Simulated scan of single mutants.
Amino acid sequence: MANAKTVRTFLGLNALFSLSVGAGFLIAPGPLADALFAEPAEWQPIVLRILAVGLILFGSGLAVIARNRFLTASQVKFISVMDFGWILASVLLLIVGGHVFTDLGQATVMAVAGIVAVFAVGQLVGAQRIVPPLSQASVTTSGGKIMAAVSRTVNAPADVVWRVMNDHPGYADVAGNLSRVEVVTGGGLGMQRRCYGPKGENWLETCDLYEDGHAFGFRIHTEAEDYPYPMSDLQGKWSVEDNGNRSKFAILIEAEPKGNLMTQTLFKMAAKRQFKVILIDLADAWAARMEREARA
């Protein structure tokens, strides 16, 4: 998202700086302790190693967050609060225990705090420019299942939205993971459609819910031989609510991953962010078509 470019840049620089400093402390704690502290002591390299681990974990987390296309202002502000905490701790450390450092050590603590301050301020400025996506998505887990949902209000009447939602071949134009969709048989409840992935893999989906003008649902046949995703069960519901000249559509996906407990846990961790991105992109593309057809 263009409106998150500034904050993602500062988060990335913050991550790179934290990882670099952490790596230095981890690789050469002894020489650095000799340079930073006035009187050598056995605890100093140990402290630097502990600090290195914390910085590497922090930097790695920032690197992941910086790649998130849908950052929220609250996430960025929390990170900036952590940065200001580092700055405050550095000031207190120099006031209370400045005597344990060499002149180079004191200068290094102040320089690092100053650089962190630049990151913190840049992140806060960037956070003010973040505009929440119009498509609101959430991903939660309960038991062994993942529930992913997205909703979007559009400037289009419900009949137009419903017509677009029921254009099953056209679904491939807005779903980034599909190359083609074809109706195999029927219409409404019991209808079957075949979906094709980008590499030609395909599977059937059966309509198991149909409320004309309001909602429909599909059960995905994940038992297909070349079904590309590690799901033992997958169901989706698409719905629309009328609000005069505007409408609100929603998609709800319920998935149960395959594998043992560890495999499922790892998949859920990875899927949370990925599901959200996929659903927001899908809803944005769908909304654009709905509003375009409403204006025609």
Rank of each mutant, 00 (worst) to 15 (best):
G143E: 02
S179F: 06
A158P: 00
R193S: 10
R180V: 03
G217E: 03
H168V: 14
P169F: 10
V181N: 08
I146W: 02
W162Y: 08
E201V: 06
W162S: 01
N177G: 04
V183F: 11
E182R: 12
A172R: 02
Y171M: 12
P169L: 09
W203C: 01
S151W: 05
Y196L: 05
K199M: 09
G186C: 09
R152F: 11
V164Q: 10
N166Q: 12
A158T: 03
G213Q: 09
A175C: 10
V164K: 03
V184W: 04
R193Y: 08
G176E: 12
G197V: 01
M191H: 04
S142G: 13
G170P: 04
A148N: 04
G143H: 04
G188P: 09
D212M: 09
A215P: 13
V183Y: 08
H214P: 01
G197S: 14
I220D: 00
G188N: 11
A148G: 05
H221G: 00
S179N: 08
R194I: 01
L209G: 03
S179W: 07
N202M: 09
A175R: 10
M147D: 10
Y171H: 14
A149K: 15
L189D: 07
G200M: 05
M165P: 01
N166K: 07
H168E: 11
A148F: 02
G190A: 11
D212A: 15
D208V: 11
V150D: 06
K199N: 15
N202E: 08
T185N: 14
M191D: 03
G176V: 11
V154E: 01
W203P: 00
P198L: 15
T153K: 14
Y171K: 09
G197D: 13
G190V: 04
M165G: 14
G143P: 11
R152P: 02
V174H: 09
L178Y: 07
G190Y: 07
F218N: 06
I220V: 15
G190N: 07
C207K: 09
N202P: 00
R163E: 13
W162N: 02
G190P: 00
K145D: 10
F216G: 00
Y171Q: 13
V174I: 14
F218Y: 15
R163W: 01
G213W: 08
D208H: 12
